[in-house]
Design a protein around this nucleic acid. Sequence first.
RNA 1: GGGCCAGUAACUCAGCCGGUAGAGUAUCGCCCUUUUAAGGCGAGAGUCGAAGGUUCGAGUCCUUCCUGGCUCACCA
Length: 497
Amino acid sequence: MNNENQLINARKQKLKLLYDLGVNPYPKSVKRTHHISDILQNPDKFIENEEELYVVGRIRALRKMGKASFFHIEDKSGRIQIYIRRDEVGRENYKVFKKSDIGDFLQIKGKVFYTNTGELSVRAKKVKFLVKSIRPIPVVKEKRQDGKKVLYDQFADKEMRYRKRYLDLLLNPDVKDTFLKRSKIIKFMRNFLDEKDFIEVETPILQPMYGGAAAQPFITKHNKLDMELYLRIADELYLKRLIIGGFEKVYEVCKDFRNEGMDRTHNPEFTQIELYQAYADYNDVMDLVEEMLTNMSKEIFGKLQFEYGEYNIDLKTPWQRKPLLDLIEEYADINIKNMSPEEIIDFCEEKELELDVKTYGKAIDEIFKNLVEPNLIEPTFVIDYPKEISPLAKSKSDESRLVERFEVFIAGMEIGNAFTELNDPFDQRERLEEQVKNRELGDLEANEVDEDFLEAMEYGMPPTGGLGLGVDRIVMLLTDSHSIKDVILFPQMRKKD
RNA sequence: GGGCCAGUAACUCAGCCGGUAGAGUAUCGCCCUUUUAAGGCGAGAGUCGAAGGUUCGAGUCCUUCCUGGCUCACCA
């Protein structure tokens, strides 16, 4: 018998004793007249009226004594102390109560009062089991010291926190708070876009051909069709088909999947909001991003200033908009605009920046990532990217190597990517064919030619601005989370055992 | 994939130069009618991440592997 069984067996014993006492530890009916927060917010009302009420919740702390006990129960709204006396609930009921453990769910009938030490509590008239918990929840104790909470035996093992998120949520209140904020952030973005007459749509996750981003896909198979399918790496090409189909503003809250390495800012499945707006360009999209994120910040957090680790971030608009090449000149201290592609590639080798494909675009990208990105702390729109690494963006009319594309950075983290979408079907075909060449040269993330998409574009796509926003990363920023695992409820983990 | 660190009771951790496992909390029993890290007395609880190796003897040393963290690389 191992120790877990010892603890579990103790609880199973109590379960049996409850049955012996004629108590159903998993009853169907529940009576609740108030949430715990109702009491916390207006205790005097309940005390003056001597109102009898029913509260329910999970036992989170328990101090049993011989003929009286204190415990705390918690529902979604808060936590309150319960005082129970044998002479007030009766011998039978107290005996039932004595079988309770931390983690059990109880229903309490009682009246609100203050204890001698001044803690708002409910004086039980009757307790009823709602659920007997069989497995012990780790006990985290806390003490107030100089107004600060000191935690004892905090549930801290990261692996267990991610694998058993339900325990993490129960035992680490900040975690719950982060995910409540995540929910509000996504809800805000939806509302914001809905109010601007965007249509929310759903496009295929299982795709016969993947595209819209540079990434390696997950591959799966449809048995009946005997067909290979890919989990989408982006929604882009389908959302553009909808613009072609006559929707002028569409968005999708999308899980995308990329079969790549995982680290602090990458999880194999992650959430984006992609949106496309006809008759707009990337300047309009920059305005939209600014407006959406600052309004969101004000509404949800009541402020525009954030601490993110060592950084102080201010979302106050306007955010700076700087051409990528200017930023390279600023941070890499080279005159990149006057350098030939060969010189730029040489510069990369000098700096030991590895290039899988030796092209102008890849070289610029590499310099930017290594020498510029980490410096982009304040919100910054980096504009005008090399064409070779942006096969879906429209060329800048005055500069043939560049396209109308921006990425938005905050705290050195890329949180969004947008283009004035390429809508010239001839140019688009050329660009995709160029991608295939890169693929053959070893660029595993290069796109393939999606003939169906090209055909759609040949029918005519209006001028369009498009955007992908990294929802997980935005949540990270606004909740001061430094790993994407801390903003995804069930992050990807290796199989254990 | 590389480097560093970690994995010992349900939780949080200690365990020195190698001598066969320890604390607090939790659990169980007794006492306890205003406690709050409740308290007092007593008890039980471990495949020391896994597998090999060295040794008379391994939690401890060596090798490989597993899992996680940090970091570098990779990564729209």
